[in-house]
Design a protein around this nucleic acid. Structure first.
Length: 415
DNA sequence: AAGCAGAGGTAAGGTCTC
DNA sequence: CCAAGAGACCTTACCTCT
C-alpha cells in the first residue's frame, strides 16, 4: 500500500473578535461594529448611549466632540471590524481616531480577552477531539494534519473539513473557513479562497492555475516591505516569482529569504504541524496617552517603567520561566524606534533585577527626544525548573573556557 | 606579526503575523 | 494628522576564540 498523501488543513475563524461579540449581542447584526482599544476609564460614562439597542455598549462619540473622542479612543487601533463597518473604509489596524471620522455611527466594543480565550479553547478542543495533530497559530487560527485521520483523504480532505466546520458551529455558534492542501503554506492560502464559512481544496496540480496568478502578498511571510521591493523588481504574481532564478533571488534578498522565496513560489513547504512550542521571549510595552520627555516627565516615566518590569516579572513567574537577557524598546514621537539588550550572569524572573538591568539599557539610549512608547523584554528563556539542568549541560562557551584558563593560571601563581 | 576562515555569541534593527 | 501589543524570525555587524 502506498503511503497516504500528506493532507494539511488551515482553519481560520471568520471575523473572530466581532463574531464572538455578536453571539452576546445579536441585535448588532448588520450594524457597523468596531472592536478595539479604548480608554477604559470613560467606558462607564458612554455605556448608556446605546440604550436604544438595549445593551451596555458605547458608541463613537460625535466627531464634533473632539476632546471627548480623543480621550475615549486615544491612540488605540481597530482589531476587527464587521462587514457593515468595512463598507465605510474602516479596517483592522486602523487608528481609532481615523475610524471615528470615517464612521462616527459605529458601535465600539473593547476586546474581551476572557471571552475570546474561552471561545478559542472551545473551538480548538473541538478540533483535537476529531484530529489530534493541531498547531496553534494565535487565538483564531490553527493548522491541522489530516493525513492519518480516518476520512482525512476523502475528497482531498473536504469531507473531514466539513465535519470539523459543523462540529465547531454546534459547539460555539461560530463559522470558520478551511483550506486543505499538501502543506501548510498552500493550506493557508487555500483557506482565503472561500471566505466566510467556506472550504477550499488545493492539490499539487493546482499550483499553476490557482496559486501562480495570485499576488506575491498572498504568501504568508511576504509583507508590505518585501511586496514593494518585489514590485520594484517587476515581480507581482507568485508565478513571476517562480520564474526567477533562485541565485538571482538570493542576490537580491539574502541567502535565507531568497532561497525561501523560490521554494514557496513553487508551492514547496515541508514544515511539520508542530503540536507544541516553547516561547522565545516575553515582553510588555505601552504607548503613553501623550508623548513623554525623559527629563520633564521623569517621575511618570519611571513609574510606568517599573510597572512594566513588574508585569513582565509576573508573566515570567506565572508561566514558570526565567530569562537571561533583558531588553528595552522605545519609540520616539517621530515613530523611530530603538532597542537595547543586556545579558545577565544569572537567569532571573525577579522584578527588581529586571528593573535594574532595563534601567542600564535605558542609559545607553539618546533621550533628548520625546517618547511615545516604552517596552521591556525578556529573552533566552528557560523553564524555571530546568535552570540547573541547563547550566550543567550547556556546552561551555569559548570565552568561558578562556576565563577558566585565566583563573587556573592565576591560581597556579597563587599557590 | 599579521591575516584569514569558521564557529558561536551578543547586539541592534527590521519585518511580519494575528 | 493618524499609526497597539505580543511574539517569532531574519539580517547585519561586531567580537572572541581556535
Amino acid at each position: 500500500m502506498p503511503p497516504p498523501l500528506r493532507r494539511i488543513a488551515h482553519l481560520d475563524m471568520d471575523a473572530f473578535f466581532a463574531s464572538v461579540e455578536l453571539l452576546r449581542y445579536p441585535q448588532l447584526k448588520g450594524l457597523p461594529v468596531v472592536i478595539g482599544g479604548g480608554r477604559r476609564k470613560v467606558d462607564e460614562a458612554l455605556l448608556t448611549t446605546r440604550g436604544d439597542l438595549g445593551i451596555r455598549a458605547p458608541r463613537f462619540i460625535p466627531v464634533a466632540d473632539f476632546p471627548l473622542l480623543k480621550e475615549y479612543v486615544g491612540r488605540g487601533v481597530i482589531t476587527t471590524a464587521t462587514y457593515a463597518a468595512r463598507q465605510f473604509g474602516v479596517g483592522s489596524a486602523m487608528g481609532m481616531m481615523k475610524a471615528a471620522r470615517l464612521c462616527p455611527q459605529a458601535i465600539v466594543l473593547p476586546v474581551d480577552f476572557e471571552e475570546i480565550r474561552k471561545y478559542s479553547r472551545l473551538f480548538k478542543n473541538t478540533i483535537t477531539e476529531i484530529a489530534p495533530l493541531m498547531q496553534d497559530r494565535g487565538v483564531d487560527e490553527v493548522y491541522i494534519d489530516f493525513t492519518e485521520v480516518p476520512g482525512g483523504q476523502r475528497e482531498g480532505g473536504r469531507v473531514l473539513a466539513r465535519l470539523i466546520q459543523k462540529s465547531i458551529l454546534e459547539k460555539t455558534g461560530l463559522t470558520c473557513s478551511v483550506g486543505v492542501a499538501p502543506n501548510k503554506l498552500l493550506a493557508k492560502m487555500a483557506s482565503e479562497f472561500n471566505k466566510p464559512n467556506g472550504i477550499s481544496v488545493v492539490h499539487e496540480d493546482d499550483l499553476q492555475s490557482k496559486i501562480w496568478p495570485l499576488n506575491v502578498r498572498k504568501i504568508n511571510g511576504i509583507g508590505p516591505k518585501a511586496g514593494e521591493k518585489l514590485a520594484r523588481l517587476q515581480i507581482h504574481t507568485i508565478g513571476e516569482l517562480a520564474a526567477r532564478d533562485p541565485a538571482w533571488l538570493i542576490d537580491n534578498f539574502g541567502k535565507a529569504t531568497g532561497a525561501w522565496m523560490h521554494e514557496v513560489a513553487w508551492g514547496r513547504d515541508d514544515s511539520p504541524v508542530a503540536t507544541t512550542s516553547e516561547p522565545v521571549s516575553m515582553s510588555r510595552e505601552t504607548t503613553f496617552e501623550r508623548d513623554l520627555h525623559a527629563v520633564r516627565d521623569r517621575a511618570e516615566l519611571g513609574l510606568l517603567f517599573t510597572r512594566l518590569c513588574e508585569q513582565l516579572a509576573a508573566d515570567l513567574q506565572r508561566k514558570g520561566y526565567v530569562a537571561k537577557t533583558i531588553g528595552i524598546k522605545l519609540r520616539y514621537d517621530d515613530f523611530r524606534s530603538v532597542t537595547r539588550d543586556q545579558t545577565l550572569e544569572q537567569f532571573t524572573a525577579d522584578a527588581a533585577t529586571i528593573r535594574k538591568t532595563a534601567g542600564l539599557c535605558l542609559k545607553r539610549v539618546p533621550l533628548e527626544q520625546r517618547l511615545r512608547l516604552l517596552g521591556v523584554r525578556a529573552s533566552t528563556l528557560v523553564k524555571a525548573a530546568e535552570v540547573l539542568f541547563y547550566e550543567q549541560n550547556k556546552p561551555i562557551t569559548q570565552s568561558e573556557r578562556a576565563q577558566s584558563a585565566i583563573k587556573s593560571i592565576a591560581n597556579d601563581q597563587l599557590f
